[in-house]
Design a protein around this nucleic acid. Sequence first.
DNA 1: CAAACCGGTTTGCGTTACAAACCTTATATA
DNA 2: TATATAAGGTTTGTAACGCAAACCGGTTTG
Lengths: 100, 100
Amino acid sequence: MNETNEIASLDRLIHEPARLAILSVLYAVKEADFLFLLRETGLTKGNLSTHLSKLEAAGYIEIEKGYVGKLPQTLCRMTEQGRRAFDDYRKQLKDFLNNF
Amino acid sequence: MNETNEIASLDRLIHEPARLAILSVLYAVKEADFLFLLRETGLTKGNLSTHLSKLEAAGYIEIEKGYVGKLPQTLCRMTEQGRRAFDDYRKQLKDFLNNF
DNA sequence: CAAACCGGTTTGCGTTACAAACCTTATATA
DNA sequence: TATATAAGGTTTGTAACGCAAACCGGTTTG
């Protein structure tokens, strides 16, 4: 019935600005390492690390740990599930904005 | 420079879905009492009460306590400051969505 | 071989959102 | 007249959260 009410059902995992920033990057590039995300989002390392873990736990991204030369590298990419969730989220937001 | 990065600067007081629901109602009606907001947002009483207090503390809404007959009544309306903040928030969101 | 650096993770802490419990006054019931 | 019950909110308790500082294993530099 009430459109504005549906805002309450927003996916809070995505709604968090830090995660929104991460997902925005991953949505566009399909693969990004930790340091790239760090620069792109402006988050601190600790913060980025925990947000990535949450997104992974939710099944929204995949994390692949490897090495580049002798240095560790954390590679991230969005899953199909993540892509769908992000699409849905943006649609909800768009619908919400259209009420004004 | 980076557009997606700006999502980090979203007003978190407004960004919270419960408060977003409250503000959406108040933006439209200009004056609403506690019980109306309760029905309209679907929040619990405790929750609504604390969110209203936060919005008031931020200067985004005004709260006027009075009586209707012998029953207490809490009347809420958006301030100009709140209206501007809400407008800004929506604009930021809209800009964000336009990146996709 | 110590110090600084790299790529992250974990810890500690203040803040938050939430609903249950509670409060005050008013009305209904027995 | 006691005593539930309801109305309209507020306060309390608690688990989860977001954040940056501190930390960690390994590598390179001085």
